[in-house]
Each structure stands twice: as structure tokens, then as C-alpha cells.
Design a binder for these strands. Structure first.
Lengths: 215, 215
DNA sequence: TAGATTGTTAATCGATTAACAATC
DNA sequence: TAGATTGTTAATCGATTAACAATC
């Protein structure tokens, strides 16, 4: 808020920086220059310095960047120094897979509820949670101040459920449904459109092989 | 190949165009102008026309674009007029969720095998497939000319398995593992880094709320 | 101190938007 | 024909890269 707006491109690169710095930390590397990091990551040193300097000076002339310090700072920028609470809306295969995925918890993302409308699923145990009826989701979010709703529903289900969720005081939606959610400005949306990702792959596959389209 | 290189930004927008055109088709809309589409999609009409014109003239002055024709053409550009064969490498929660996801099949993406190294999983039925030992994956890819390997493995597993897969003649990798694969140029990679997506969401959440970082 | 490397300004490159002539 | 709307060129904007003075 106090800083100038950071571009989407820069933000998208932060998690990757964090990953490489984590690896360096694990290797016991103490400091790294933008140049050495650029070689590892296959980006320009200039971009690395520009990116970091959006958030203030993390390095030292003649020395480079302290790996642990930089790792921690980028973690803070990404909000990984706080815990975050989540519920999963839609307990199909993908919803259950996300609920079972332990690594989110390690990063401080706590899954506190999982919901579905299918009576066949309600009551089923997923990890340490029981799948509950979707009708109770909004109330749970409100009472527990849940920050993030993970939408893992089919397209049709998503649009019908979204109204309730929006009015529950949810702060962000991690959207796996194949729809563009039209939400109030103060609700954050991050989309994961798997089928679009697969189509991009298909495009590259198609344009790469010799068999050029006749039209 | 014959055309000038299309930028990544344009390619990324194609699946979204396809989705909106599919919706219009379902609504029975016969033709649409770049302006009307721009209003629906919240992009500029100029961008729409520029994007389409990378692939040739799909429209008609004074008329606009024929919805069904444009839908089909973008589908062809994305390679959705062919079938594509896939195997899933890693039969954990995410691998099984993807295997069970019916919509890929509708688009012509056929999952023909699912592999894991965990003896507890091998033999388990997932949809119409049985989880097989990972040691047989490369051979299966080679014999059946499989195009796409879906990597749904933990980081450590991914790096150890990737060598075999690369030498099997695979054409593309849909990578869900948290690593940057270092592959020969002729193998296409499309990454889906879920944890990076969640971190971006976390960033927005953190920078949006009043509690600005002290540093 | 001399060498290394940052932080930052300036130059370049590419992508988006605007404008309009071509044409259905 | 007149009106609408594309295809395409030109202008603008933003992001990336290069360069270098500041400084550890």
C-alpha cells in the first residue's frame, strides 16, 4: 500500500526465487550474487536485482545477497510468516487431493473444513476432516474468520454456490472451477485452470511437430 | 513453423477465447463482433482482433466473427482436433484425481497408463486403469508412442524418474512436481506449480489488508 | 586500497491499445 | 448505398535488459 504497485510479472517470479533460495539454504550456501543466481535460474542478473529492489535493498555491494536473510524476506513478502486458514468447497477427487496434500500445511496454510453437496460424500473422512454439507460452509467461514475458500467444483456448481460464499466475509478464492468469477473488488481471486494449461501444452505439441496445419 | 513465432501471451489467451465461444455457441449466438466479445471478456476489442489475426483472418468486415467457425478454428490451433495420449507418472492423490477427471477425455486427451513406485498402490484400480510399477513406464511410452507424461510426483521422485522418461521418446511433460525440469529442447514442458499459485494468492492477501509489513 | 557487486538510471524491446483505411 | 466492423499500421505503454556510478 505504501509502496508503488508491484507488477503481476514480478509477483509471479517471487515463489520461484523462494524455491531456489530454499535449495541454496539446504546446500549450505551462505551468500549468492545476482549473477550466480541468474546462471542457476536462467534469467538475467539485471532482472533479479530489479525484482528485489521493488521491495527494498536486500543485498550489499561487493558481497551479494545473504541466502537465509533473502529467503526469509521473500517469505515475508509472500505472507508466509502468517498462518492462513482455508476451507475446500467441493470434495470430489481434486478437492480431496488438495485436502490430503501435506505441504500446504507446512507452509502455514491450514485446511479447516471440506464441503460438498453430494450426500454420498458427506460424512466421509478425509485426512483429519469429515466432509460436511455445503449448506453449512458460509456459516463456518463467518464464525471462524476463514480467509481462503478453495473452489473445486464443476462449472455449474461453482456459479450456484458462489453467492453464499461471497457474503460470508471470505477474503480470497483459489478457483479451480472453469469459470471466471465475477466478484466484488475486495475479494481476491487466484485461478488455476488446469484444462487451459493442458490446452497450452497441446498447442505447443501441435505447432512443434512437422505436420503443420493445412489451414 | 511457417508462421512467425506467436508470443506466449497470445497462446495463453486462446483457451479462454475458446471457453467464451463455447458458451456463446451453447447460447445459440451465431455471430459476435470483437467489441461485444471484448465487453463479455473484459479485454479490449483491439487485443481480440490482434490475437486472432496472428492466425489469419477469421472475421468479416461489417459482420464480425461466426461463432461456430471461430470456435472450431481456435480448437484446431490448440490441437484439439486430434486425440492425444497420456500416461500419469505418480499415482498419489493428485495423480488419481487427474486420472478420474473425465473432462480431459471429452477434449481428446486419453489417459492410457498410470504408474507409481509404491507397492501399496500398484495393482489398485483407478477408473479403468490399474496402477502399474513405474519401472515399466518408459517401455510402455516407447511401444505405444505416448505423447504426454503427466508428472505428479514429489520433488525427489521427479528428478530420479525423469531420465528414463526423457529417453522413452516422450514428446511433452505436464509437470506438477515442484522442480524446474532441465530437458532437451525438443521436449515440451508445461508447468503447473500449485504451491506457487497459492503463494501468489497469499501475497495478494497480505498486501491487500491494512497491516502493512513493518519491514 | 582494489575488486566485486549492488542499486538505480537509461536504453531497448515487446506487448497492448488506438486509429483508420479497406471492405463486407 | 450506408453502416458496421474487420485487418492492419502507428502510437503508447510497460517490462526487460544494459550500463555504470555508488559503495561495501
Amino acid at each position: 500500500m505504501s509502496e508503488r504497485k508491484i507488477s503481476q510479472a514480478v509477483i509471479s517470479r517471487l515463489p520461484r526465487y523462494l524455491r531456489y533460495l530454499g535449495d541454496l539454504k539446504d546446500e549450505g550456501v551462505e551468500r549468492i550474487s545476482s549473477h550466480d543466481l541468474s546462471v542457476r535460474m536462467h534469467v538475467t542478473a539485471s532482472q533479479i536485482r530489479q525484482d528485489f529492489n521493488h521491495f527494498g535493498g536486500f543485498g550489499q555491494q561487493g558481497y551479494g545477497y545473504n541466502v537465509v536473510y533473502l529467503y526469509d524476506e521473500i517469505g515475508k513478502i509472500l505472507g508466509l510468516d502468517h498462518k492462513h486458514t482455508m476451507v475446500i468447497i467441493g470434495a470430489g477427487n481434486l478437492g480431496q487431493a488438495l485436502a490430503n496434500y501435506m505441504n500446504f500445511e507446512k507452509r502455514g496454510f491450514l485446511i479447516l473444513g471440506i464441503y460438498d453437496k453430494d450426500p454420498a460424500l458427506i460424512g466421509k473422512q478425509v485426512r483429519n476432516l469429515e466432509i460436511e454439507d455445503i449448506s453449512g460452509a458460509a456459516d463456518f467461514i463467518r464464525k471462524n474468520n476463514i480467509e481462503i475458500a478453495v473452489l473445486t467444483l464443476p462449472k455449474a456448481g461453482a456459479t450456484s454456490v458462489i453467492g453464499d460464499i461471497v457474503n460470508s466475509g471470505i477474503k480470497a478464492i483459489w478457483n479451480f472451477a472453469h469459470v471466471d468469477l465475477d466478484l466484488p473488488d475486495d475479494i481476491i481471486v487466484e485461478n488455476v485452470h488446469l484444462s487451459e494449461s493442458l490446452m497450452k501444452l497441446s498447442y505447443k505439441l501441435t505447432s512443434a511437430d512437422g505436420t503443420e496445419r493445412i489451414n
